[in-house]
Amino acid sequence: MGDRQQKTLLKAASWTEREDYDGLVLVSAPDQAKSQKVLHDAVSEALTYDAALTSELAVLPLRDLNTRLVHSPTGPIDSDYGDVRLFKKAAADGIKRALKSGMKAPLLVLEEHSRFPRAELVTLLGALEALYVPIQVRESDPSKVQKIDRIGVLTSCKQKTEKLVQLADVLESGRRVACDIGDADPERMAPQRVEEYVRKVFADGTIKLDVLSDLQHLTKEFPLFEAVNRAASVVERHRGRVIFLEYDPKDNVTETLFLVGKGP
């Protein structure tokens, strides 16, 4: 990715590497088993003192490990209406609480859930979303580019963790590009600057980039776009563009996807 893009700083970790991190973050549902006994015991003991911790965040000491645990529960999941997004929200809340506690290198513990096979991925993506820093903040204060130094990821299997980290890193990188473009101030991401940003992000050539900006061509070939662009086009920096991004992998392609979107 280009130099304006945040890094996710993800690393697949094992339980024996926990000392490389300054705290643990656990997201779990009330009916979810915990793979590490020390985490199960810590949460179970806390619940004997405060039943509200089935749905309330808590920072718990793990004295035997000389570290701390942020436990972010999903709360009870309704059998009819509850869905995997509860894990995403709990993960975001947990990471934010970890930051407040002073963690700079949290280890995120992901647990399997029988009802939600994607719970681990959704949990990880929720944590990464909470770490996103808007582009205007990053540009105005470079010291705020990253909220953490790194984030470790732990599942029941190192091989599975590595695949999960790779997938999450790709998905989050794309999401952050979309957020930079779509959530920024309209003047910061006026069409001309969107083009500049996209060219920098995909400068390595992995993604084929084609930008249409000639007004006569747009008027002839994209009349509906021209109708929207008509008022803006009188100001050069506000003149719209049609941007084509194409990823054509070297491997055998079995599926073709077309994604169409409208910018601000």
Rank of each mutant, 00 (worst) to 15 (best):
D248H: 08
T48Q: 13
R188L: 10
R188C: 05
A13T: 03
W15H: 11
K163V: 08
G240N: 03
E221C: 09
V228D: 05
V38F: 12
V137T: 15
D214K: 13
H71T: 01
R18G: 01
K37N: 11
L124A: 08
C179W: 13
G102W: 07
S156K: 14
V234I: 14
G263E: 06
I135D: 08
K163Y: 11
L131W: 06
L121A: 10
V194N: 00
S101T: 05
E236G: 05
T219A: 14
Y21P: 01
C157H: 11
E187V: 14
E221K: 13
L128N: 02
E255W: 11
A29M: 06
G23K: 02
P61M: 00
A119M: 02
S140G: 10
E139D: 15
L245V: 02
D141F: 00
F202T: 00
R63D: 10
D20E: 15
D248Q: 12
T67C: 06
L245T: 00
V43Y: 01
V153R: 04
S35L: 09
V137M: 08
V25Q: 07
C179L: 15
Q5H: 12
H217D: 11
A231K: 11
L259E: 01
T67M: 00
D93G: 03
G126N: 03
Q32N: 10
P117W: 10
E129F: 07
L154V: 08
T54R: 06
S140T: 13
S44K: 13
P186A: 10
V109T: 05
A168E: 00
Q216S: 14
T155M: 03
P73N: 10
G102D: 07
S114A: 15
V201L: 04
V153L: 08
E120K: 15
Q6I: 11
V25R: 02
V122P: 01
D251L: 09
V235C: 06
G75H: 02
G240Q: 05
A227K: 13
L26R: 00
K88N: 02
V27N: 04
R237A: 13
T219H: 11
P223I: 07
D50R: 08
P264L: 14
A184T: 06
V165S: 08
Q5I: 15
L167D: 04
E221V: 10
V235A: 09
N252G: 04
H113N: 15
V211S: 09
A51K: 12
A105E: 12
V38G: 00
T16A: 14
Y21S: 07
V242R: 03
I148L: 14
E255K: 14
P186Q: 09
E172N: 12
